[in-house]
Design a binder for these strands. Structure first.
Lengths: 196, 196
DNA sequence: CGGTAGGGATAGGGTTCT
DNA sequence: TAGAACCCTATCCCTACC
């Protein structure tokens, strides 16, 4: 009698991802109310959004466990060119409501220079995304860099040298930030996890 | 990133119930400040108490209205200890750890005698509990005996013949006490509600 | 500002359908 | 057996009103 199971279309999924990019996870009602997404998502509830995001995240998680194989497959660039327009390439936003008051030239980030480039603002967003990745991957022993890369690739539109940026931020966040490095005896890679 | 969700422990819940019994509903800050509970509830705010009490109440409510449904689903009847064995007497808050060891004259009560048995003290507490049940069920037309029984069963450790005790007290409370009987045209049962 | 009531949103565990 | 969509409700959050 109820709806016969309404499968998510790629458009809806893209809108959801863009919405999370813009407003952050957990802001399901906000995303729904945003006129930028409300049309595409008009047949979804905030709970639907939350559930779908959970499915996406879970997928990304154990995708990250058999990563190597998949990673080889998607040899090159932005692996998933979601047909949707919306966001540009830089890893930005999570545009947080209280955060800004800092209109520092957002333009610079996309450049592609290997340098640490990126304005203060986009650094902040990237850090947020990293934290979100670790949080959502919720691997009990923390996540290694590859998992984090893959999570971000799965869930965001990434600029060409995202990995380098992420690596730089990881180093910074773990040296004097909210992350800790975890070394495991029988593992080659260092994992990261948030404090507290 | 703080507490992903702080589930209520049975100890906390018991403390809350005891606090409400002692200070009444709506006195959340008072309960929190009472040294008798402040330790167990130290990680809770007054708003938390309010919210939790709301949950307990609504759970008890529709637990009493549509219990049959659940009973059908869970074909396993579970440990339903009802009126058969003869054990203790007084009605205690559930899962109460530190509370009482109150050997109030169990003598003579258990027999199943129709008499009003039970000491003055336990009568008083039983009346309190009945009032609490009606108050918290807050059914707009008052609650019938079954709902009241079920509420008490849900929230307290009940002696074998609790129902009889409650029935007796209901009669008393409504004949010369703070309760009123309400007869409804299209209902077979009489409901009870508090005055004022 | 502190407190309470009430509405509403979110997080997670469960369930159902495929 | 698993995955996606959906349900249930405890907990949390926000706002209005003292």
């Amino acid at each position: 009698m109820g709806a016969p199971k309404q499968k998510w279309t790629p458009e809806e999924e893209a809108a959801l991802k863009a919405g999370v990019l813009k407003h952050g996870t957990g802001k399901w009602r906000t995303i729904l109310s945003d006129p930028e997404f409300s049309l595409v998502l008009k047949s979804r509830s905030n709970v639907d959004l939350k559930d779908k995001w959970r499915n996406i995240s879970v997928t990304a998680l154990w995708g990250s466990r058999k990563k190597a194989k998949l990673a080889l497959k998607r040899t090159q660039p932005a692996p998933k060119q979601d047909d949707n327009n919306t966001a540009t390439l830089s890893i930005l936003p999570l545009a947080n409501d209280e955060e800004r008051a800092n209109p520092t030239s957002p333009g610079g980030s996309g450049g592609g220079s290997p340098r640490t480039c990126a304005s203060k603002r986009s650094i902040t967003s990237l850090d947020k995304i990293i934290l979100e990745a670790i949080t959502n991957l919720k691997e009990p022993r923390g996540s290694d860099r590859t998992s984090i890369f893959l999570y971000i690739e799965e869930n965001f539109k990434t600029p060409p040298n995202m990995k380098r940026h992420v690596a730089v931020r990881l180093k910074h966040l773990s040296s004097n930030g909210p992350l800790v490095k975890i070394k495991h005896k029988y593992r080659f890679s260092t994992n990261f996890n948030s404090l507290g």
